[in-house]
Amino acid sequence: MSAYSITEPSKASKWVAGILVTLYMVITLLPLAWIISTGFKTGPDSISYPPKVIFSPSIEGYVNLFTDRTRATPEQLATMPPPDNFVDEIVQRRGEVVTGPSRFGERFLNSIIIGFGSTALSIVLGTLAAYAFSRFKVPLKDDLLFFILSTRMMPPIAVAIPIFLMYRQLGLSDTHLGMILLYTGVNISLAVWLLKGFIDEIPREYEEAALIDGYTRFQAFRKVVLPQAATGIASTAIFCLIFAWNEYAFAVLLTSGNAQTAPPFIPTIIGVGGQDWPAVAAGATLFLLPVMIFTILLRKHLLRGITFGAVRK
């Protein structure tokens, strides 16, 4: 046998592969682990030098993330009733009092509404458009498809100023609807193209069989095409959500008071009463969760979808 034939990998090469994969994992996961652990440190621990790997965990960061606070003099503290919950206890121990909830919860909710809202809208419009492009005689089909793709050819931020002006005129600035429309506009080209690929792979006969079995075109679409396009829909939804969830530039530009999402909000935490790294880390940790949960929930579909229909037939 020559050295190039395919054989069972030797013990040594298995070891090397194992080490490389572990190394890669450490490199990619280390920053994540650092963020998550920083979220559970106290302020001094988070900036101590040398950095602390072993520390006594605290939920100070999370408390700070969700509260607005102000410094209090020892006299003021003395006049206050003893703390009756863990939040007040932690805050008062540092010589501060809670003045109210922070805006993080609201911003996080905005992110969820805008992220999932625009994902849902992109998927609904994208699936219908992709189905039409895949199945019907659409006049100027190729030109339209190219036009849709071309909207994605420049970085979206290149049109930031016209969009800023238009949104002000239309009253869409700093509204949930405005942000949902904007992210849908950016995502729709990806959604149409990806989904068209998936729907093209579904043989027409399935729908035709349903039509002959007495279903209307729309029923055939819903009951036959949709279940089979589930893979494609799941993977497209994840791509759309990741974009809308992480988008920063437009969010900074177009939102402030009402519809601000989490990405532009998290950096502002840092300015409230010194450099509050644990609170920032706590915000970042919570921010990671929704996309992670969504991806894990759709994982089964995603893995099948990654092959882009190659498994069928």
């Binding site: 006969e205 035709e208 069989a209 039509l211 002959i212 279903y215």
Partner: peptide
């Protein structure tokens, strides 16, 4: 339309 003709079909595939 096909749904109103009350015909059944066996496709090649």
């Amino acid at each position: 339309p096909a749904s109103q003709r009350d015909i059944a079909m066996v496709f090649q595939m």
